[in-house]
């Protein structure tokens, strides 16, 4: 897929620019110092993970309505990238928590709802990989893809609804960030967005190719 090659180069370039913004452009935060720079990769990972799960939700609804293989493959691709990114957001957040709050983990609403979301979508991936038959598996996964999305708005609003030690950066105006810090956040959001698109499209293409190989294999067996 030539488009994926171009997108891969683009995402590498965008991530490099993002790194320059983090290490050379953004000022050092007064209280946390260099540890605050974890935020610039943590937040885009969490943000694009939520976008992934929204894509799973939309693709699952589409699959339930049209029963097309493409929607099912797209939902699987987005879920895989979402689980990877939310997992990394949890890991980077945990490291940040150890440096900032002196604990690796705390049962805070934002952290707890994110962990639940991670387990739900990890379960979704396990279900996708199960030996259940093709169309039946796609249907069950589509239903789970819709139901699982219930937790996503909870993750997003958890820091605002309940008392949370987790900062709600987008909720507060400016989030206590300096303009240079905001620019760094936005550049990295964009860079991780290009990476997210590359990974989802790459995984989608792979899923399509696997489907085609399966069809050829079945066709060959039926013909034999």
């Amino acid at each position: 897929m030539p488009n994926i090659k171009i997108l891969s180069i683009l995402s590498l370039a965008a991530l490099a620019v993002g790194q320059w913004f983090i290490w050379s452009y953004a000022p050092l935060e007064e209280t946390m110092g260099v540890v605050q720079k974890i935020f610039y990769i943590h937040m885009p990972l969490a943000w694009w993970a939520l976008v992934s799960f929204f894509v799973v939700f939309v693709a699952s609804i589409r699959h339930l309505m049209k029963r097309d293989a493409g929607s099912d493959i797209l939902a699987g691709a987005a879920a895989e990238v979402g689980v990877l990114m939310s997992g990394l957001a949890l890991v980077s957040g945990s490291i940040w928590g150890r440096a900032a709050w002196n604990v690796w983990w705390t049962w805070d609403p934002r952290l707890t709802t994110t962990l639940i979301m991670w387990f739900v979508y990890a379960g979704y991936l396990v279900l996708r990989g199960s030996g259940m038959g093709g169309e039946r598996r796609a249907l069950v996964c589509a239903v789970l893809g819709v139901v699982a999305f219930l937790d996503v708005p909870l993750v997003f609003y958890s820091a605002r609804i309940w008392r949370s030690v987790h900062p709600a950066v987008l909720a507060s105006q400016g989030g206590g960030l300096e303009p240079e810090m905001w620019r760094t956040v936005l550049v990295n959001l964009g860079a991780f967005g290009v990476l997210w698109l590359t990974l989802v499209l790459g995984r989608f293409g792979l899923g399509r190719a696997e489907e085609r190989a399966r069809a050829l294999l079945l066709g060959g067996r039926e013909g034999a």
Partner: peptide, 18 residues
């Protein structure tokens, strides 16, 4: 800082591996 190195290493190694 060790925490920054650990967070960056975890993220970039996992993304690169995927």
């Amino acid at each position: 800082n060790g925490y920054v190195v650990a967070a960056n290493a975890a993220v970039w190694i996992a993304l690169g591996a995927y």
